[in-house]
Nucleic acid binder design. Structure first.
Length: 271
DNA sequence: TATCAGGCCCTAG
DNA sequence: CTAGGGCCTGAT
């Protein structure tokens, strides 16, 4: 058990921000967060958090996963005071952090996310974990399934994943797993590349377009300059930024602003 | 019954 | 290079 006092950190907001499809609230203020084959439980009460995991695992993994060392108040301070819309968005979602999620899991998750609803995305991912993930036991003795490694998916037929409800995205996932195994894409190298290069590499994957590539860059590789544009973001920008989003002002951390906007559109905007 | 979800691929022009 | 049809499935 690790106790921490953390500002600008709100798991309910992170949960709803849609970066992580496996995270869930199991009881009021209690969250279970899987990542790859790991699992942590966090109890949050305001700025007081208790992390339930081995202490060493917290130090080497979860601290970075939740980006706890980073100062998000500093990002929010740089918002243009005259930009009422973005100020409101950040005021609502100021507890969001950009997670450092498992790369392979994030690639598959956002392949599945395209042209899909959040509820169904969650089900799809639960299905493939239960079917092809390995059984694990958490720090508090609960059994769960890890996210399936590429080896577990590469040999599957398209129909096997359709049975997991992936629909036409099945072939994207199987092909991606094969690319990882064949060395067509090197996850280790990918995580060392700068944003532009990583994005370019990801776009070579069948089924990965610009939006999905940017989600992977932002939510796994932690390239905060990635700014995924989906239908919600496009609509919000058309409505509030007639001359385009002022990305230059937020150079290097546009992705943080994207999350505030996305969360605001999803949960908070009046229309 | 039609439309559209946190898109992307492919083919025509 | 740009436009448009097709794609699994289910919620509305």
């Amino acid at each position: 058990m690790i106790r921490k006092t953390i500002s600008n950190f709100d798991l309910s907001q992170i949960c709803a921000s849609g970066q992580c499809f496996r995270m869930r609230e199991t009881a009021p203020g209690t969250y279970v967060i899987p990542s790859g084959e790991r699992l942590v439980r966090v109890m949050q009460n305001g700025e007081d958090c208790v992390f339930d995991c081995p202490e060493q695992e917290f130090d080497v993994y979860w601290k970075d996963y939740f980006d706890l060392e980073n100062d998000y108040a500093g990002y929010i301070e740089q918002i243009n005071p005259r930009d009422t819309y973005l100020r409101e968005a950040a005021a609502l979602g100021g507890g969001i952090r950009i997670l450092r999620q498992d790369l392979w899991e994030t690639i598959v998750s956002f392949l599945i996310s395209q042209q899909n609803h959040i509820a169904r995305i969650r089900r799809c991912i639960e299905n493939i974990c239960a079917e092809y993930g390995s059984r694990q036991v958490s720090a508090w003795g609960e059994e769960y399934y890890g996210f399936p490694r590429p080896e577990a998916l590469a040999g599957l037929s398209e129909d096997a994943l359709k049975a997991c409800n992936l629909g036409y995205r099945s072939k994207y996932v199987v092909r991606a797993a094969k690319s990882v195994l064949s060395g067509g894409i090197d996850l280790e190298r990918l995580s060392q590349m700068p944003y532009r290069k990583a994005r370019e590499e990801l776009l070579k994957l069948y089924g990965v377009g610009e939006k999905v590539a940017d989600c992977i860059c932002l939510f796994a590789l932690h390239h905060l300059e990635a700014f995924p544009v989906d239908t919600h973001i496009r609509q919000a920008i058309e409505q509030h930024y007639r001359r385009g989003f002022p990305g230059r002002r937020y150079r290097g951390f546009q992705g943080v602003m994207q999350q505030y906007i996305f969360y605001y559109e999803l949960t908070g905007s009046p229309d």
